[in-house]
């Protein structure tokens, strides 16, 4: 049993290393991955910044930017599905499944390396946010906790994306299927506006959306506002999603073949 766990960790590392090695060889991709969220940040702040007033926030930027951080991290999870679809299409999944390696390692390695890449994007975005006036008014410790909550939620969604990537037959389909639900997930939430301004049914959806919960928790922590149980709930959501979807994704992987 411990031997199996050890193997799983080793195989996961070999797999993660494959992806991590490639990152510095594709600086272009990394730069473009960082440009998009920066663009979002700047556009939202300067286009909407002046016109939206959120009760309880003197400054819309302090409300908005944590929402964009959350959205960016969640969008980043789509890389997992796209990468796996690519491996599947290229026949690499067949090869890996014919090796005497741990079944879950391929997706663990992939999600972990995607996480590293998302952290890089996140760091660049934070730097830009600070440059245009964002402040961690809740202090460093709270900011770290907030970031961990966001990153963990994004990591959980990358397991959902893994299933999508292994279910579709092309990289293009993985791209569409991976992003399409991210828009309602992140917009019908508290990320950009207060849900109480939404029409009734939409508001119900926004309130029930776990992304709202995670965003609220992170926002409260970044701004030093009372966070209540939101932090625990968002932790519970992430852990729950990881538990369920890692089992499902590994099962899916064990049955996937190309063509």
């Amino acid at each position: 049993m411990t031997r199996r766990v050890l193997w799983m960790l080793r195989d996961s590392w070999v797999e993660a290393e494959r992806h991590l090695r490639i990152i510095p060889r594709n600086i272009e991709l990394l730069i473009f991955a960082a440009i998009q969220p920066i663009m979002f940040l700047v556009l939202f702040v300067y286009v909407f910044g002046g016109s939206i007033v959120i009760p309880g926030f003197d400054d819309y930027d302090q409300f908005l930017m944590p929402g964009i951080f959350a959205q960016t991290l969640v969008f980043g999870s789509a890389f997992t599905g796209i990468g796996l679809a690519d491996d599947l299409q290229k026949g690499l999944v067949d090869r890996l499944r014919s090796l005497p390696m741990s079944r879950s390692a391929v997706i663990i390695g992939r999600t972990v390396s995607d996480l590293v890449r998302n952290l890089f994007t996140f760091a660049v975005m934070i730097a830009v946010a600070l440059a245009i006036g964002f402040r961690f008014t809740g202090g460093a410790w709270n900011a770290v906790v907030a970031t961990v909550l966001l990153v963990l939620f994004s990591y959980a969604l990358s397991w959902v994306q893994a299933i999508i990537g292994l279910s579709v037959t092309s990289v293009e389909a993985a791209n569409s299927a991976g992003f399409i639900w991210m828009f309602p997930l992140t917009f019908v939430s508290s990320a950009f506006v207060d849900p109480s301004t939404m029409p009734g049914w939409l508001r119900t959806v926004a309130d029930a959306n776990p992304f709202t919960l995670v965003t609220d928790a992170a926002r409260a922590l970044y701004n030093g506002n009372p966070v209540g149980n939101d932090a625990w709930w968002s932790l519970a959501w992430s852990v729950g999603l990881i538990a369920v979807f890692s089992a499902l994704a590994t099962r899916k992987f064990s049955r996937s073949t190309s063509g």
Partner: peptide, 25 residues
């Protein structure tokens, strides 16, 4: 060796061999 060459395009030939060899433990 499957019907379509299953290699990691973004690694070198040696790295590909190293990768698979390590997965064989």
């Amino acid at each position: 060796t499957g019907q379509y060459a299953a290699v990691e395009e973004r690694l070198t030939a040696r790295e590909n061999l190293d990768y698979v060899g390590r997965l064989f433990h």
